[in-house]
Simulated scan of single mutants.
Amino acid sequence: MASNLKYSASLKNAQQDAITTKLGASAVLNIYSGSQPASPDTAIGAQVLLASLTCNATFAPAASGGVLTLNSIANGTGTAGAGAGTVATWYRLTTSGGTAHIDGTVGISGADLNLNNTNIATGQTVSVTSSTYTNAN
């Protein structure tokens, strides 16, 4: 039998708010080049860390309409792994202690995480322009 689950608005918001709770204060956003792993439970292999940014002390305000919108993040800088023309392709969100919870795509627009520029060099300023998490069910 096919599934046709539908959730109330309050449940969708609660599910999204659980992301903020799970990540805790000052989550870390690590931006990588290379192939995105199968899940946040998969160890990072040959992927190269291009930038690491600390999220706002509160990851996001309360969800609305099943959408969680990331609070602003202070700009970061490209790390030693970033070289001229190194392209950011995915990210991993972790707790401040390093426990991974979310992986997603990186782009200029239309990605899970949108940056001002995906070509990251060492010392370059990296700015997040938007990131939202949607419970569309």
Rank of each mutant, 00 (worst) to 15 (best):
A18N: 08
I19H: 01
I19C: 02
T20C: 07
T20V: 09
K22P: 03
L23K: 02
L23D: 02
L23Q: 06
G24R: 03
G24T: 02
A25L: 03
S26F: 06
A27R: 04
A27K: 09
V28K: 14
V28C: 04
L29P: 02
L29M: 10
I31T: 03
I31N: 05
Y32N: 12
G34R: 09
G34T: 06
G34A: 12
G34L: 05
S35M: 07
S35D: 11
P37N: 03
A38D: 01
S39N: 03
S39V: 01
D41N: 09
D41S: 15
T42I: 15
G45D: 15
G45K: 15
A46E: 12
A46C: 02
Q47G: 15
Q47L: 12
V48M: 14
L50E: 01
L50A: 00
A51P: 10
A51T: 11
A51D: 11
S52Y: 05
L53V: 05
L53E: 02
T54G: 11
N56Y: 08
A57T: 07
F59A: 01
F59G: 02
P61C: 06
P61G: 12
A62V: 12
S64N: 12
S64L: 11
G65R: 05
G65A: 12
G66K: 14
L68S: 05
L68C: 00
L68R: 10
N71R: 06
I73N: 07
I73G: 03
I73R: 07
A74T: 08
A74L: 08
G76N: 14
G76W: 11
A80M: 04
G81T: 11
G81N: 10
G81V: 11
G81M: 15
A82P: 13
A84I: 05
A84G: 01
T86D: 08
T86S: 06
T86H: 04
T86Q: 08
T86G: 02
V87N: 07
A88S: 14
T89P: 09
W90K: 12
Y91R: 02
Y91D: 07
R92V: 14
T95Q: 09
S96L: 13
S96C: 00
T99A: 15
T99E: 13
A100F: 05
H101D: 03
H101N: 03
H101M: 03
I102Q: 08
D103G: 02
D103T: 13
V106N: 01
V106Y: 05
S109M: 05
S109W: 08
S109D: 11
A111S: 09
A111C: 03
D112V: 04
N114F: 03
L115Y: 00
N116R: 08
N116E: 03
N117K: 09
T118I: 14
T118Q: 03
T118N: 07
I120G: 00
T122L: 09
Q124P: 04
Q124S: 09
Q124K: 11
T125Y: 05
V126R: 06
S127V: 04
V128E: 08
T129E: 03
S131F: 15
S131L: 10
S131K: 09
